[in-house]
Write a protein that binds this DNA or RNA. Structure first.
Lengths: 339, 339
DNA sequence: TTTGTCCTTGCAAACGTTTGCATTTTTCTA
DNA sequence: TAGAAAAATGCAAACGTTTGCAAGGACAAA
């Protein structure tokens, strides 16, 4: 590969015009077969690699898709990115990745920079309460797809797990197993996804006319420590507010909660049942698989990729698609059946 | 933000030349202060965003860094990417990410495509046994930095944990705790990093004149299942080839091995001590923290970022830097002290 | 007033492509 | 063999910047 070989240099060597070289290499329009052969041969000899930047400028398309995430080291996002990459790279697109560190300001900076790079599309897991920065991509007809945290009432497209259903499914899984005193540890309620999960959970309870003791609802920040702390509070209050099961709404909080239970010498699921959220048992070191409500990351990533290809390659401009994927129950050994 | 506002359109509106607009906005060369103000004001009014593609073409620099990995959903890589992103984005660089799925052909395709995008640098965790594809970046004076798996005797730069030391450190940790029959589960020996770890392990044993029973050396493929399988074999042979501790050379195999032990009703560390590798206890759900040899991901990523900035921004062209970072022991509760 | 200096601005080329249109060459038909 | 149709090629503009060089104007010193 040589980056200093250009259409021009090949043209000069061959004594033909640049246009001919371009056409020969892109085998689009008609070029004399003998000419083409000579061109191709020479291009190979010199290791010609087209300059995508020049191409982008000319075509007004960078063949590039921005992916903006709060934390790429989270397995959840990693798996999604992996799928998106697989789908779009098959169509010649490359990912521009930005990690915002869950910081609103960083997110805005990255968006600005990516806009400057004239990305063809944007996939965004936002931590920003304002939508306008993402919106301005769409205003310039750059497709935007939200994942994970979808602003309420947005016009933009989105692919996520159905968080309301996930909350309800969690409640039902425990209720169906005979649990009637159910605690929960949910995420920060200023995030849409978290608040939907709680709503779903409560709605499940309401449907079966089971009152939920407010003392059994704890809020954490998704980190392991907060799951641990919340669980400790629940356990401390167990005399006053007893419970037989807990639904923990994030992977790391689930681990923290389990740790708190084990530390007190209680057994899972004999003493307390745990239903986790999005636990990656495959990657996980426990001897016991945790029953959990799973987000279908592979599906999310794949769907995002497909929407992107639809928009960019097939030029289908379905404005504002809202894809809600169903959560699943992944069975493990941490929920006991009281029936 | 508007992408259809260009230097030209602002120039026309203001009745001055494009050059002046460019200079005013880049506040490089001298421009009349009043002119600059007018330009800046108009640029803001129209939401002008420079076209990075045009800029790249002109400057022969895309402000873009390629990161090519076998599996972005691995926490190890995720953490590295996060750090690299943090360092380089502060200097205006953006990451182009490619996930090869541990597939040599995919890796080559991605490299080709990234080369085409004229990235300014390449960070590569390779699964390719041939070095030439990466080499051709360097041949065109594009800095290349290997991470994780560094080809033996390469001319290119590299930042990794010192795998030999990691192997030795693992042995010593167990030996110092009084263990004398030490098993190990290592990675596939065609990968340099894995073979170095084994060499380090054996070298540690040799230094203290402790013979290692070859039956106690197992090879896995880094996945959880293979750790489980290898451990089962070790346990099945325990009568013939007894051992009190095992050093498992990857995170997921560590989990698998622990599971195998627990399933047989054996206790860690009372019956068997486990020393893991690169276990992320923070993210991990076990009630017991696993003692392990840690790769300093944050350091790796940070160092890679710094080398990139040195090369790209500070124009220090130190050819072929080999950075070996020291592994650490992260103490947990899975190695018993026999002294 | 002249000369020279400095400040500000414009011109035009360059970066490497693609592509509509015009032009040349070839091939075919009558 | 002329003429037309078809095929192959070239020309030049365009994409949106940056930047070396030159030119213009203002102003001060002589």
């Amino acid at each position: 590969m040589k980056s200093d070989t250009t259409l021009k240099s090949i043209a000069k060597e061959l004594g033909v015009s640049v246009s001919t070289i371009s056409r020969a290499l892109n085998n689009k329009s008609v070029v004399n077969e003998k000419t083409r052969e000579k061109v191709v041969e020479l291009a190979k000899k010199y290791g010609y690699v087209p300059n995508e930047i020049a191409r982008s400028l000319q075509k007004c398309s960078s063949h590039t898709i921005a992916v903006v995430l709060p934390d790429i080291s989270e397995v959840f996002f990693g798996k999604i990115v992996k799928q998106i990459s697989a789908v779009v790279s098959a169509h010649g697109y490359t990912l521009l990745l930005a990690d915002t560190g869950e910081n609103k300001e960083q997110e805005r900076k990255h968006l600005q920079s990516l806009y400057q790079h004239r990305v063809d599309a944007l996939v965004l897991a936002s931590v920003d309460d304002e939508e306008k920065h993402a919106k301005s991509f769409a205003d310039n007809s750059i497709p935007v797809i939200y994942i994970d945290n979808v602003p309420e009432g947005t016009d933009l497209s989105a692919v996520t797990v159905d968080n309301f259903s996930a909350g309800k499914l969690g409640f039902n899984r425990l209720y169906d197993a005979g649990h009637r005193s159910i605690a929960t540890i949910m995420g920060l309620q200023n995030e849409i996804s978290a608040s939907l999960r709680l709503k779903g959970f409560l709605s499940g309870a309401e449907e079966v006319n089971l009152p939920i003791n407010p003392d059994l609802i704890k809020i954490g920040d998704y980190k392991r420590q907060s799951g641990y702390d919340a669980m400790c509070e629940l356990l401390d209050n167990r005399d006053k507010s007893p419970f037989t099961a807990v639904y923990v709404a994030s992977e790391k909080m689930t681990y923290g909660a389990k740790k708190a239970i084990n530390e007190r010498g209680l057994k899972v699921p004999e003493d307390i049942s745990i239903l986790g959220f999005d636990v990656h048992n495959d990657d996980y070191g426990g001897s016991q698989n945790i029953t959990s409500i799973k987000q279908p990351e592979e599906q999310i990533g794949k769907k995002v990729g497909e929407l992107l290809i639809d928009a960019l390659v097939n030029k289908i401009n379905a404005s504002s698609q809202k894809i809600l994927l169903s959560p699943l129950v992944e069975e493990g050994d941490t929920v006991s059946d009281l029936n």
